[in-house]
Design a protein around this nucleic acid. Sequence first.
RNA 1: CGCGGGGUAGAGCAGUUCGGUAGCUCGUCGGGCUCAUAACCCGGAGGUCGAGGGUUCAAGUCCCUCCCCCGCAA
Length: 317
Amino acid sequence: MRVVFLGTPDFGVPSLKALVEAGYEVVGVFTQPDKPKGRGNKMLPSPVKVCAQGYGIPVYQPVKIRLDGVEALRALSPDVCVTAAFGQILSQEILDIPRVGTVNVHSSLLPKYRGSAPINWAVMEGEQVTGVTTMMTDKGLDTGDILLKKEVAILPGETAEELTVRLAPIGAELLIETLRRMEAGTCPRTPQDEREASYFPMLKKEMGDIDWRMDAKSIVCRVRGLTPWPGSSFQWGDGEMIKVWKAEEAENPGKAPGEIICADGKQGLVIAAGKNAVRVLEMQAPGGKRMQAKDYLRGHPVSYTECKVTEEESHGS
RNA sequence: CGCGGGGUAGAGCAGUUCGGUAGCUCGUCGGGCUCAUAACCCGGAGGUCGAGGGUUCAAGUCCCUCCCCCGCAA
């Protein structure tokens, strides 16, 4: 089978590797163009590109595949296309190119958590189980027929970042099984149940602003789900922004949301929330590195008595 | 050359403006107090101040070069 792989971040790498190692003829890899990234604005290739080059597979980086990538893809005459966190929307014209169709590896139990950040949202919503799904891509956003699904438990305290690392190889395995069964003609294919469907939007930086009026459990879930990007942060009164990397629920002796219950090297940092309170375990100040809250507090005495409480601006969108 | 912060004891920091004996909190080790303790008291160990060069009677501090780390923005 001639396979064309489309993917961009780390999540896709195990799938690409699995394809190659399972003996599929990966004739081309599409990935997002290199972008200036990181300190110094160096141009950085996507993880999938690096992996593809390691195998000597031709790499294509159209800005918008549905506009400037169609001919390149057609020229590869793939039997099947495989996508895994590619990051670009495929047009019907693109979907019509591979003979068998386009298989997508999606990191949730579809039809739940459609959208571009399923892992983050599942964690943010406090789910205890999620998984990966392979599906036939169609014109809609994660709406195609489901092929195979595998459930995976979300561990207590696990962050989206950690879960992504665990899910990626599981997705790769499921992908190979899916292709094998498709070739054997034994792969199930079932339409998604729209009544069960849920869609969650792309992450935005503003989602990282901690709203101390929410209950502590939700805040902790968001901290986990928004790791590593955009991260969760709050502001000391009118002072520095602090990024929270790790937190847990704690008791609130009756303080108002945003009030600092304690902040010293011995007791650690505890801030009142809408319900209960949040104990910050790992934090990071601007310009500083990530560290244990107690370590931070030893060298940075805190004089504020409360944190800025997110005001007015209506959330959502 | 995108903007900016930083590297000082095992950890987190102060000290650098204006050169003059290396400080703080915690940890650690020893001792004490206590029914007891993550509490408290006393004492100790632990540092090529990121690297190299320069200026100087004298450099953590001033000058030059380099290495490494981090935040923002994308």
